[in-house]
Simulated assay, not measured.
Amino acid sequence: MSFFKRLKESVSKTTESVTQKFKDGLSKTSSSLVGAMDSVFSRNRIDEELFEELEDVLIGADVGVQTTMEIVDRLRSEVKQRKVKDPADLQPLLSEILVEMLQGDDRDTAMNLKADGLSIILFVGVNGVGKTTTIGKLAHQYRQEGKRVILAAGDTFRAGAIEQLEVWGERVGVDVIRHQAGSDPAAVIYDGIQAAKARGADILLCDTAGRLHSKVNLMEELKKVYRVIQREVPEAPHETLLVLDSTTGQNALQQAKWFNEATRLSGIVLTKMDGTAKGGIAVAIRRELSIPVKWIGLGEKLDDLQPFDAEQFVHALFVQAIEKEEEA
Protein backbone atom coordinates (compact mmCIF):
# COMPACT_ATOMS: atom_id res chain seq x y z
CA MET A 1 0.00 0.00 0.00
CA SER A 2 1.41 3.42 -0.97
CA PHE A 3 2.00 6.07 1.66
CA PHE A 4 -0.72 8.23 0.09
CA LYS A 5 -3.28 5.45 0.65
CA ARG A 6 -2.13 4.89 4.23
CA LEU A 7 -2.26 8.63 4.83
CA LYS A 8 -5.81 8.88 3.52
CA GLU A 9 -6.92 5.94 5.66
CA SER A 10 -5.39 7.54 8.76
CA VAL A 11 -6.98 10.92 8.04
CA SER A 12 -10.38 9.31 7.42
CA LYS A 13 -10.46 8.23 11.07
CA THR A 14 -11.14 11.86 12.07
CA THR A 15 -14.33 13.73 11.26
CA GLU A 16 -15.00 14.69 7.67
CA SER A 17 -15.57 18.32 8.72
CA VAL A 18 -12.06 18.59 10.18
CA THR A 19 -10.52 17.10 7.03
CA GLN A 20 -12.48 19.57 4.92
CA LYS A 21 -11.33 22.50 7.06
CA PHE A 22 -7.70 21.53 6.50
CA LYS A 23 -8.32 21.13 2.75
CA ASP A 24 -10.06 24.51 2.48
CA GLY A 25 -7.62 26.34 4.74
CA LEU A 26 -4.54 25.01 2.96
CA SER A 27 -5.92 25.19 -0.58
CA LYS A 28 -3.69 28.12 -1.59
CA THR A 29 -0.53 26.40 -0.40
CA SER A 30 -1.65 23.10 -1.93
CA SER A 31 -2.36 24.62 -5.33
CA SER A 32 0.93 26.48 -5.38
CA LEU A 33 3.04 23.62 -4.04
CA VAL A 34 1.55 20.76 -6.04
CA GLY A 35 1.47 22.88 -9.19
CA ALA A 36 5.18 23.59 -8.87
CA MET A 37 5.98 19.99 -7.95
CA ASP A 38 4.10 18.59 -10.92
CA SER A 39 6.77 19.94 -13.22
CA VAL A 40 9.52 18.55 -10.98
CA PHE A 41 8.06 15.06 -10.66
CA SER A 42 7.03 14.80 -14.30
CA ARG A 43 10.66 14.80 -15.40
CA ASN A 44 12.01 11.80 -17.31
CA ARG A 45 14.46 10.68 -14.66
CA ILE A 46 15.64 11.24 -11.12
CA ASP A 47 18.84 13.25 -11.27
CA GLU A 48 20.61 16.08 -9.47
CA GLU A 49 18.77 18.67 -11.54
CA LEU A 50 15.46 17.31 -10.22
CA PHE A 51 16.62 17.64 -6.61
CA GLU A 52 17.79 21.20 -7.25
CA GLU A 53 14.40 22.12 -8.71
CA LEU A 54 12.69 20.57 -5.71
CA GLU A 55 14.87 22.66 -3.40
CA ASP A 56 13.71 25.80 -5.18
CA VAL A 57 10.06 24.77 -4.82
CA LEU A 58 10.35 24.04 -1.09
CA ILE A 59 12.28 27.23 -0.36
CA GLY A 60 9.65 29.14 -2.34
CA ALA A 61 6.98 27.63 -0.06
CA ASP A 62 8.82 29.04 3.00
CA VAL A 63 10.04 25.66 4.20
CA GLY A 64 13.37 27.41 4.86
CA VAL A 65 16.85 26.72 3.50
CA GLN A 66 18.09 24.59 6.40
CA THR A 67 14.97 22.42 6.54
CA THR A 68 14.78 22.14 2.74
CA MET A 69 18.35 20.84 2.57
CA GLU A 70 17.55 18.22 5.19
CA ILE A 71 14.36 17.14 3.38
CA VAL A 72 16.11 16.80 0.03
CA ASP A 73 19.05 14.94 1.58
CA ARG A 74 16.64 12.47 3.19
CA LEU A 75 14.81 12.09 -0.11
CA ARG A 76 18.10 11.31 -1.90
CA SER A 77 18.87 8.70 0.73
CA GLU A 78 15.42 7.08 0.48
CA VAL A 79 15.61 7.00 -3.32
CA LYS A 80 18.93 5.18 -3.14
CA GLN A 81 17.83 2.83 -0.36
CA ARG A 82 14.48 1.92 -1.95
CA LYS A 83 15.90 1.92 -5.48
CA VAL A 84 13.25 4.36 -6.72
CA LYS A 85 13.51 5.04 -10.46
CA ASP A 86 10.28 6.83 -11.39
CA PRO A 87 10.11 10.57 -10.49
CA ALA A 88 6.34 10.20 -9.98
CA ASP A 89 7.06 7.97 -6.96
CA LEU A 90 8.86 10.81 -5.18
CA GLN A 91 5.71 12.70 -4.17
CA PRO A 92 4.38 10.12 -1.68
CA LEU A 93 7.94 9.65 -0.45
CA LEU A 94 8.24 13.39 0.17
CA SER A 95 4.91 13.49 1.98
CA GLU A 96 6.08 10.65 4.24
CA ILE A 97 9.20 12.64 5.19
CA LEU A 98 7.12 15.77 5.90
CA VAL A 99 4.74 13.89 8.20
CA GLU A 100 7.67 12.47 10.17
CA MET A 101 9.23 15.92 10.51
CA LEU A 102 6.01 17.58 11.64
CA GLN A 103 4.88 14.90 14.07
CA GLY A 104 7.80 14.78 16.45
CA ASP A 105 6.68 13.36 19.77
CA ASP A 106 2.87 13.10 19.79
CA ARG A 107 2.88 14.14 23.47
CA ASP A 108 4.32 17.57 22.75
CA THR A 109 1.50 18.49 20.35
CA ALA A 110 -1.21 17.97 22.98
CA MET A 111 -2.18 20.82 25.29
CA ASN A 112 -0.77 20.41 28.78
CA LEU A 113 -3.90 21.11 30.82
CA LYS A 114 -4.64 19.96 34.34
CA ALA A 115 -7.39 17.40 34.78
CA ASP A 116 -8.43 19.16 38.00
CA GLY A 117 -7.81 22.72 39.13
CA LEU A 118 -6.76 25.82 37.23
CA SER A 119 -4.77 25.67 33.98
CA ILE A 120 -3.07 28.89 32.83
CA ILE A 121 -2.24 29.54 29.18
CA LEU A 122 -0.03 32.52 28.36
CA PHE A 123 -0.13 34.00 24.87
CA VAL A 124 2.76 35.98 23.36
CA GLY A 125 3.37 37.45 19.93
CA VAL A 126 3.77 40.74 18.10
CA ASN A 127 0.84 43.01 17.32
CA GLY A 128 -1.33 42.17 14.34
CA VAL A 129 -0.76 38.40 14.26
CA GLY A 130 -4.26 37.51 15.48
CA LYS A 131 -3.40 36.92 19.13
CA THR A 132 -6.63 38.33 20.59
CA THR A 133 -8.75 36.53 17.99
CA THR A 134 -6.94 33.27 18.78
CA ILE A 135 -7.66 33.71 22.49
CA GLY A 136 -11.34 34.34 21.75
CA LYS A 137 -11.63 31.29 19.49
CA LEU A 138 -9.83 29.07 21.99
CA ALA A 139 -12.11 30.32 24.77
CA HIS A 140 -15.07 29.35 22.59
CA GLN A 141 -13.67 25.84 22.03
CA TYR A 142 -13.08 25.24 25.73
CA ARG A 143 -16.54 26.58 26.54
CA GLN A 144 -17.97 24.10 24.04
CA GLU A 145 -16.18 21.36 25.97
CA GLY A 146 -17.89 22.51 29.18
CA LYS A 147 -14.85 24.25 30.66
CA ARG A 148 -15.16 27.36 32.80
CA VAL A 149 -12.95 29.98 31.15
CA ILE A 150 -11.74 33.45 32.16
CA LEU A 151 -9.69 35.89 30.06
CA ALA A 152 -7.05 38.28 31.43
CA ALA A 153 -6.47 41.42 29.34
CA GLY A 154 -2.72 41.66 29.91
CA ASP A 155 -2.03 43.69 26.75
CA THR A 156 -2.42 47.09 28.35
CA PHE A 157 -0.08 48.73 25.82
CA ARG A 158 -1.85 48.50 22.45
CA ALA A 159 -4.72 50.89 21.92
CA GLY A 160 -7.99 49.00 21.78
CA ALA A 161 -6.55 45.65 22.87
CA ILE A 162 -8.56 45.53 26.10
CA GLU A 163 -11.80 46.46 24.37
CA GLN A 164 -11.16 43.92 21.62
CA LEU A 165 -10.76 41.14 24.19
CA GLU A 166 -13.93 42.28 25.96
CA VAL A 167 -15.85 42.00 22.68
CA TRP A 168 -14.62 38.43 22.36
CA GLY A 169 -15.56 37.75 25.98
CA GLU A 170 -19.13 38.88 25.33
CA ARG A 171 -19.28 36.95 22.08
CA VAL A 172 -18.30 33.61 23.58
CA GLY A 173 -19.79 34.19 27.03
CA VAL A 174 -16.75 34.40 29.31
CA ASP A 175 -15.62 36.98 31.89
CA VAL A 176 -12.70 39.30 31.13
CA ILE A 177 -10.45 40.65 33.89
CA ARG A 178 -9.15 44.08 32.91
CA HIS A 179 -7.48 47.23 34.20
CA GLN A 180 -7.15 50.60 32.54
CA ALA A 181 -4.91 51.06 29.50
CA GLY A 182 -1.29 51.57 30.53
CA SER A 183 -1.66 49.54 33.73
CA ASP A 184 0.91 47.01 34.91
CA PRO A 185 0.26 43.78 32.93
CA ALA A 186 1.51 41.63 35.80
CA ALA A 187 -1.14 43.19 38.07
CA VAL A 188 -3.83 42.30 35.53
CA ILE A 189 -2.63 38.71 35.34
CA TYR A 190 -2.52 38.55 39.16
CA ASP A 191 -6.14 39.71 39.38
CA GLY A 192 -7.04 37.23 36.65
CA ILE A 193 -5.56 34.37 38.68
CA GLN A 194 -7.38 35.45 41.83
CA ALA A 195 -10.67 35.75 39.96
CA ALA A 196 -10.15 32.35 38.31
CA LYS A 197 -9.50 30.73 41.68
CA ALA A 198 -12.46 32.44 43.36
CA ARG A 199 -14.87 31.53 40.57
CA GLY A 200 -13.67 27.95 40.21
CA ALA A 201 -12.49 28.42 36.63
CA ASP A 202 -10.80 25.58 34.76
CA ILE A 203 -8.77 27.71 32.35
CA LEU A 204 -7.30 31.22 32.43
CA LEU A 205 -6.22 32.60 29.05
CA CYS A 206 -3.75 35.49 29.41
CA ASP A 207 -3.12 38.08 26.72
CA THR A 208 0.18 40.01 26.68
CA ALA A 209 1.66 42.91 24.74
CA GLY A 210 3.94 42.31 21.78
CA ARG A 211 6.10 45.26 20.90
CA LEU A 212 9.32 44.03 19.36
CA HIS A 213 10.63 47.55 18.83
CA SER A 214 11.13 47.70 22.61
CA LYS A 215 12.64 44.30 23.28
CA VAL A 216 14.19 45.13 26.65
CA ASN A 217 10.91 46.44 28.08
CA LEU A 218 8.99 43.49 26.70
CA MET A 219 11.49 41.01 28.11
CA GLU A 220 11.28 42.55 31.59
CA GLU A 221 7.49 42.72 31.37
CA LEU A 222 7.23 39.03 30.46
CA LYS A 223 9.66 38.06 33.23
CA LYS A 224 7.51 39.89 35.74
CA VAL A 225 4.35 38.21 34.42
CA TYR A 226 6.07 34.82 34.76
CA ARG A 227 7.12 35.57 38.34
CA VAL A 228 3.58 36.53 39.31
CA ILE A 229 2.05 33.45 37.67
CA GLN A 230 4.57 31.04 39.24
CA ARG A 231 4.21 32.63 42.65
CA GLU A 232 0.44 32.14 42.58
CA VAL A 233 0.38 28.80 40.73
CA PRO A 234 3.86 27.23 41.02
CA GLU A 235 3.58 24.80 38.09
CA ALA A 236 2.13 27.43 35.74
CA PRO A 237 1.96 28.67 33.05
CA HIS A 238 0.96 25.26 31.79
CA GLU A 239 1.34 26.47 28.21
CA THR A 240 3.16 29.46 26.71
CA LEU A 241 1.96 29.79 23.14
CA LEU A 242 3.52 32.03 20.51
CA VAL A 243 1.00 33.29 17.97
CA LEU A 244 2.46 33.78 14.48
CA ASP A 245 0.94 35.15 11.28
CA SER A 246 1.78 32.51 8.66
CA THR A 247 1.42 35.05 5.83
CA THR A 248 4.65 36.72 7.00
CA GLY A 249 6.69 33.66 6.01
CA GLN A 250 10.32 33.68 7.10
CA ASN A 251 9.66 36.75 9.25
CA ALA A 252 7.47 34.50 11.40
CA LEU A 253 10.44 32.18 11.85
CA GLN A 254 12.59 35.09 13.03
CA GLN A 255 9.89 36.11 15.51
CA ALA A 256 9.74 32.54 16.78
CA LYS A 257 13.51 32.49 17.30
CA TRP A 258 13.43 35.74 19.26
CA PHE A 259 10.46 34.84 21.46
CA ASN A 260 11.95 31.41 22.10
CA GLU A 261 15.00 33.16 23.53
CA ALA A 262 12.87 35.59 25.53
CA THR A 263 10.33 33.11 26.92
CA ARG A 264 9.93 29.40 27.54
CA LEU A 265 7.69 28.57 24.61
CA SER A 266 5.77 25.31 24.71
CA GLY A 267 4.02 25.66 21.37
CA ILE A 268 3.10 27.70 18.32
CA VAL A 269 -0.25 28.91 16.98
CA LEU A 270 -0.10 29.57 13.22
CA THR A 271 -2.85 31.98 12.16
CA LYS A 272 -4.16 33.04 8.74
CA MET A 273 -2.96 29.87 7.04
CA ASP A 274 -5.87 30.20 4.62
CA GLY A 275 -4.41 33.51 3.42
CA THR A 276 -1.02 32.25 2.27
CA ALA A 277 0.35 30.06 -0.50
CA LYS A 278 3.50 29.47 1.58
CA GLY A 279 2.33 27.18 4.37
CA GLY A 280 5.73 25.48 4.49
CA ILE A 281 6.63 27.79 7.37
CA ALA A 282 5.00 25.20 9.67
CA VAL A 283 7.67 22.68 8.67
CA ALA A 284 10.50 25.20 9.12
CA ILE A 285 9.38 26.18 12.62
CA ARG A 286 8.91 22.58 13.75
CA ARG A 287 12.28 21.46 12.43
CA GLU A 288 14.54 24.44 13.08
CA LEU A 289 13.25 25.37 16.54
CA SER A 290 11.92 22.01 17.78
CA ILE A 291 8.76 23.78 18.93
CA PRO A 292 5.50 21.98 18.15
CA VAL A 293 2.71 23.72 16.25
CA LYS A 294 -0.28 23.15 18.53
CA TRP A 295 -3.02 25.12 16.79
CA ILE A 296 -3.58 26.29 13.23
CA GLY A 297 -5.91 29.01 11.97
CA LEU A 298 -7.70 27.83 8.82
CA GLY A 299 -10.32 30.58 8.41
CA GLU A 300 -12.36 33.28 10.11
CA LYS A 301 -15.13 31.17 11.70
CA LEU A 302 -15.12 30.36 15.40
CA ASP A 303 -14.32 26.69 14.78
CA ASP A 304 -11.66 27.36 12.13
CA LEU A 305 -8.97 27.31 14.82
CA GLN A 306 -8.02 23.63 14.84
CA PRO A 307 -5.57 21.48 16.81
CA PHE A 308 -2.59 20.91 14.54
CA ASP A 309 -2.47 17.46 12.99
CA ALA A 310 0.59 16.57 10.90
CA GLU A 311 -1.23 13.94 8.84
CA GLN A 312 -4.20 16.22 8.14
CA PHE A 313 -1.76 19.01 7.21
CA VAL A 314 0.25 16.92 4.71
CA HIS A 315 -2.89 15.23 3.36
CA ALA A 316 -4.38 18.66 2.62
CA LEU A 317 -1.17 19.76 0.88
CA PHE A 318 -1.04 16.72 -1.39
CA VAL A 319 -4.77 16.09 -1.78
CA GLN A 320 -4.62 16.78 -5.52
CA ALA A 321 -1.83 14.23 -5.97
CA ILE A 322 -3.69 11.70 -3.80
CA GLU A 323 -6.83 12.06 -5.93
CA LYS A 324 -4.76 11.64 -9.09
CA GLU A 325 -3.28 8.41 -7.73
CA GLU A 326 -6.77 7.06 -6.99
CA GLU A 327 -7.94 7.86 -10.52
CA ALA A 328 -4.94 6.14 -12.09
Rank of each mutant, 00 (worst) to 15 (best):
G104I: 04
D105A: 09
D106R: 15
D108L: 11
D108P: 01
T109Q: 14
M111D: 07
N112L: 04
L113G: 06
K114G: 01
K114A: 12
A115R: 12
D116M: 13
G117V: 13
G117H: 09
L118W: 07
S119N: 02
I120K: 00
I120W: 01
I121N: 09
L122D: 06
F123T: 07
V124W: 12
G125L: 06
G125I: 01
G125C: 08
G125N: 11
V126S: 12
V126K: 02
V126Q: 09
N127Q: 15
G128T: 04
G128Y: 12
G128W: 11
G130L: 10
G130K: 09
K131M: 10
T132N: 10
T133Y: 01
T134I: 10
T134S: 15
T134E: 12
I135Q: 00
I135T: 01
G136T: 06
G136R: 00
K137E: 04
L138Y: 07
L138P: 02
A139S: 13
A139D: 03
A139F: 08
H140Y: 15
H140K: 10
Q141L: 09
Q141W: 08
Y142H: 12
R143K: 15
R143Q: 14
Q144D: 14
Q144C: 14
Q144I: 08
Q144Y: 03
Q144E: 15
G146R: 05
G146L: 13
G146D: 12
G146H: 06
K147V: 03
K147M: 06
K147D: 05
K147I: 06
R148I: 03
R148T: 08
R148Q: 10
I150D: 00
L151C: 07
A153G: 02
D155Q: 02
D155R: 01
T156C: 14
T156F: 14
F157A: 10
F157L: 12
F157G: 01
R158V: 04
R158S: 05
A159S: 13
G160R: 04
G160I: 09
G160T: 01
A161Q: 04
E163L: 00
Q164Y: 13
E166M: 10
E166G: 05
V167S: 11
V167I: 15
W168P: 03
W168I: 04
G169R: 08
G169W: 08
E170L: 10
E170P: 00
R171Y: 02
V172T: 12
V172N: 06
V172L: 09
G173R: 10
G173M: 09
D175F: 11
D175I: 10
D175Q: 15
D175K: 15
V176F: 08
V176Q: 08
V176S: 05
I177N: 00
I177D: 00
I177K: 04
I177R: 00
I177L: 01
I177Y: 06
R178G: 12
H179P: 06
H179T: 11
H179Q: 15
H179M: 13
Q180W: 10
Q180R: 15
A181W: 14
G182I: 06
G182N: 09
G182D: 09
S183D: 06
S183M: 11
D184G: 09
D184K: 05
A186H: 05
A187W: 13
V188N: 01
V188I: 07
Y190P: 02
D191T: 02
G192P: 07
G192V: 08
G192Q: 03
